[in-house]
Design a protein around this nucleic acid. Structure first.
Lengths: 202, 202
DNA sequence: GGGCTTCTAGAGAGTTCTCTCTAATATTAT
DNA sequence: ATAATATTAGAGAGAACTCTCTAGAAGCCC
């Protein structure tokens, strides 16, 4: 029925990921993506409504790919501590397997022009955030968190700490150290084991 | 001997900080800064060699202002655990006192165009990194860290974890919760108290 | 006040990027 | 074959931005 595409969406998004990892979101210009993929600019505009749409798709595809395994890890065990450790390992392992895409996780949706996104893209982003919030809230509950501060510590433990472990190497472009998974797991576990009364300090 | 300036360097950098906090580094264009400060573009180019120079200065001034108090906190006590806790509190307190400038700390020098910087600006950035590295290495040593992983955990504890505590509110533009200092301090302390044998896991 | 210097002021050239538009091309269904 | 259609291909208009350049204004020192 029609001519087959020489550059499909995923080719173009792959090129955009490379550019974003190397030069940050501002490096993802339509002309740069076209050049990187070897495609004419017309093909880009045939696939994406405009630059905001491309930025939204590259960001959302990356986050959703990451979250897929992340949620699986968070639900991999009935023991919340074990689940948290698995989640921490997942963040590091996924970064090891997908270093370019992981580079994007260090940015926020705002850096990908969230304010210019179409409603549908915003909705997808909100949905992802909602799922993350729900998952960490459930974990916090299972761990017996009693107030906002304790819930926030759970979020810190299972999301922010693992991301911090990979941040420096990703920024510097150096490979992750061999023990990164172990480091993330143990730090996450340490925060999950804290309790509200502050009794753990020496 | 000469006409007094109507827009001095610090006025212009203040405007640049506002723009960077609101729209990220890409929002810091010469015309936007000029408009925000109410100055003509000529005045901007009179103070800064070009956009890269402006970006470098706004980044370096912010980081150096932050580090001033940060180093003081890190050396505020002979007890390394107490010093680490003070550093964690400092990050949160400084963010509370300077929310706009703190927003810039979530970015890296790369996002401010480091590759286009003049040698002198790079040197200043390297010097800051060097001091941070030296300070955390000293702390790790005082805590008895025996390998790279333990040293890395110290860095995570006194730098990345406190930054993670302020990251989400800064990105969302919401105020820090009242207990943020306490949260950061306790999480930092928990990581500093970990030891290499992994015996703390249940 | 005259001369010197620093700064403001803004017009405008040149560049880069986004996005549109038209024409050509390749493939499938009939 | 032929028609129908998705796609490539790239020229070019328009916008945004950086940076240069010239003219004049404002203070200080003699």
């Amino acid at each position: 029925m029609a001519r087959p595409p020489r550059f499909d969406i995923s080719d173009l998004l792959d090129a955009a990921v490379r550019l974003a990892a190397e030069h940050g979101p501002p490096g993802v210009t339509m002309s740069a993506v076209a050049a990187a993929a070897g495609a004419p600019s017309g093909s880009l505009y045939h696939r994406f409504a405009g630059r905001s749409a491309l930025l939204a798709e590259v960001w959302l595809r990356t986050v959703e790919r990451f979250q897929e395994g992340y949620f699986a890890a968070l639900e991999s065990s009935p023991d919340p501590r074990a689940a948290g450790r698995a989640a921490a390992r997942h963040v590091v392992a996924w970064t090891r397997a997908h270093p370019l895409e992981a580079g994007l996780l260090l940015y926020g949706a705002q850096d990908f022009g969230r304010e210019d996104w179409a409603p549908e893209h915003r909705r997808r982003a909100d949905e992802g955030n909602r799922r993350v919030g729900a998952a960490t809230a459930k974990l916090a509950d299972a761990l017996g968190a009693r107030d906002a501060q304790e819930a926030e510590r759970v979020t810190l433990a299972v999301i922010d700490v693992p991301l911090s472990v990979v941040r420096r190497p990703l920024r510097a472009g150096t490979p992750l150290p061999a023990h990164a998974e172990e480091l993330a797991e143990r730090c996450t576990d340490a925060l999950l084991s804290l309790r509200g009364d502050g009794a753990s300090a020496t």
